[in-house]
Design a binder for these strands. Structure first.
Length: 576
RNA sequence: GCGCCUGUAGCUCAGCUGGAUAGAGCGCUGCCCUCCGGAGGCAGAGGUCAGAGGUUCGAAUCCUCUCAGGCGCGCCA
């Protein structure tokens, strides 16, 4: 039940009736203070203005025959024309008892859509580094959320596997043609240094550089030797990535890979279609699309280059082919590009070209979900002490090691193996949650101490809150909390009940505007409200009926935290 | 030069389509409590929301300009 939407519908309908204006909005929002109720409608003032009438009078009329069907215990007009809605405890209890017995905490959305999520998309030439962390984690959380809401999610890992640097890598590999598979794997164990070596030779040795350029051409022309070497390299690189995804708890699989090379044989067709549509212009030998809305510094048209003067294609071409594939073949309703903010101009151009060229269906929405950069404590992009990029695998291992120290300090009596297990969950959770809890638009400062803190909006705090609730149910005399009937009386019970009911509102909201930090905030607030409830309302000491009701609230809280974290791609622990 | 993003408490960050007295955590000050696992609860101090105009009954939020930082801007991806 999405109470917010429900109230919006009823009250907006009432406003329309009274005002005679169709499409009036109630503008339901959470009330900021308890004295203003639980929800408030802010739409009266705007409508009154339109009608040039007194907002209080209009409010009175709206309230006159308003029937919320037992949802509210009190509805009042306040201030210049707010409608404050106080939710009835009986209604909360009734809703929670329905929720308690249902398998899912959130009902699937009525509309069934195909959602393509393009995320992670590292360059296979190199090892994944911290720059890939944020997009990978945010994209994965969004994919999970859409799936949970019953949408058909199509993950697309748009690997970079076809750029010019592969010529260089192939040349480097040519020295190893006689190696068998396991020996080759050993050579490629550290992709980073393999790449570095190749680059060094490329820069120092003209013969090597020439061979590399030739290899690019050969590769793209389908030369079998080059293709074989390329494929061997890609296979190993994909394995590296998959190991990383598994460790990080990312749902991407080999089947989700639609690398750049996948679109290779469609690129010529893209050019032809653009040409047929009369959109192509040749400029300095390159083939470009010029659109009016994009202009450069001198007010001149800004090109989207789709074919280089040497005949090669660019990533704009590949992205156009991908749009066509996703819209026309995958039948996407939404395509979400979880890609960092620096590419925003590129996407604006490509999306617009795709639209003008009809590469996408009318109702297919292309959305660039951009995100900011990870900074070090100095406020500059996050680097190693020596100024290099931080490998993702190293980062995860450091997180786990730090979590292990922390667990060992807090709980030294646990077996080491158990502490290791806890550490691997806490360390990964801390990193992921830290990324997700921030508004994706802003740059943020990476800080181990904050993300591993047990205070504040962090993974350890939530994991601890969860484990603590669960510990109640390990008592022998508590068998099946799902059976308990929930009663809602005390103020703290009401607050908790309402918050629990709002889980679906939050998840649905995130599916609309794709800000997972809203879900993090919800979980943090839920845990806080629960703590206040637990502080004020004795559970185990209460009389049977109340005790069981409160156990029911505890159980529902635990389930909600677990489900919420799971949507963010974070595991929970029964003990920690 | 043009464009995009960012600027909120000492620090790290929230603040949803404009709504009532701008919030949280850390740090600082004080208080309380022990049904689970104190990795707890409550309260206080701390803000010209970068600055200046404007729109509005109402602006951190929308518009314009200025300042500061980050990023992008024809054949890399």
């Amino acid at each position: 039940m999405n109470l917010k939407h429900h109230l919006e519908k009823i009250i907006a309908g009432r406003i329309s009736e009274v005002s005679g204006l169709t499409g009036s909005k109630a503008l339901i929002n959470y009330a900021r203070e308890a004295t203003f109720g639980d929800y408030q409608a802010n739409g009266i003032m705007g409508v009154a203005k339109q009608l040039k009438t007194n907002p209080r009078e209009l409010g009175e009329k709206v309230l006159a025959d308003l029937d919320l069907g037992g949802i509210a215990r009190k509805v009042e007009l306040a201030g210049p024309g707010f409608i404050n809605i106080f939710i009835s405890p009986d209604y909360l209890a009734q809703q929670l008892n329905t929720l308690r017995t249902s398998a899912a905490l959130v009902q699937p959305l009525v509309a069934q859509t195909n959602v393509v999520v393009d995320y992670s998309s590292p360059n296979l030439a190199k090892e994944m580094h911290v720059g890939h962390l944020r997009g990978t984690i945010i994209g994965d959380a969004l994919a999970r959320i859409f799936e949970y809401l019953g949408q058909t999610v199509i993950r697309q890992n748009h690997f970079g596997d076809w750029g010019t640097q592969f010529g260089m890598l192939i040349t480097q590999m040519q020295d190893m043609q006689q190696l068998d598979e396991s020996e080759l794997k050993k050579e490629l164990a550290d992709l980073e240094s393999f790449y570095r070596d190749a680059k060094e030779r490329f820069d120092a040795d003209p013969e090597f550089a020439n061979a590399s350029r030739e290899n690019v051409v050969k590769l793209q022309a389908g030369d079998s030797t080059c293709l074989k070497l390329w494929q061997a390299f890609i296979d190993i690189s994909v394995e590296h990535c998959q190991a990383l995804y598994d460790k990080l708890g990312i749902t991407l699989r080999v089947d989700d890979i639609k690398a750049e090379s996948f679109y290779n044989d469609r690129l010529a067709g893209i050019i032809i279609q653009l040409d047929d549509a009369g959109l192509l212009t040749e400029s300095d030998g390159a083939r470009c699309v010029f659109l009016d809305e994009f202009r450069n510094k001198d007010g001149e048209a800004l090109p989207t280059i789709v074919q280089k003067s040497d005949g090669g294609y660019l990533y704009a071409t590949t992205d156009l082919a991908a749009i066509q594939y996703r819209s026309k073949e995958l039948n996407a309703n939404r395509v979400l590009y979880v890609v960092d903010a620096r590419q925003s101009l590129h996407f604006q151009q490509v999306f617009r070209v795709a639209e003008v060229a009809h590469f996408k269906a009318e109702q297919c929405s292309l959305e660039h979900l951009s995100y900011g950069t990870m900074m070090g404590s100095d406020g500059k992009p996050f680097k190693t002490r020596t100024g290099g990029t931080v490998k993702l695998m190293d980062l995860m291992e450091e997180g786990i090691a730090r979590a292990f120290d922390l667990v060992s300090e807090k709980n030294p009596d646990l077996e080491e193996s158990e502490r290791r297990e806890i550490a691997s969950v806490v360390g990964i959770a801390a990193i992921k949650y830290f990324e997700l809890s921030k508004n994706r638009n802003s740059d943020y400062i990476f800080d181990w101490d904050t993300m591993l803190s047990f205070d504040g909006n962090t993974a350890p705090y939530l994991l601890y809150a969860y484990a603590r609730i669960r510990s109640i149910f390990r008592r022998e005399d508590i068998v099946s909390p799902h059976e308990y009937t929930i009663l809602v009386n005390d103020e703290e019970e009401q607050a908790l009940a309402l918050k629990l009911l709002q889980f679906s509102e939050t998840v649905e909201q995130v599916s609309e505007d794709c800000y997972p930090n809203q879900l993090c905030l919800y979980l943090y607030e839920l845990a806080g409200i629960y703590m206040r409830f637990y502080e004020a309302c004795p559970v185990l000491k209460a009389e049977t009926t109340v005790r069981e009701s409160r156990l029911g609230l505890c159980d529902l809280t635990a389930r909600t935290i677990k489900q919420g974290l799971s949507l963010l791609g974070i595991d929970t622990l029964e003990k920690m």
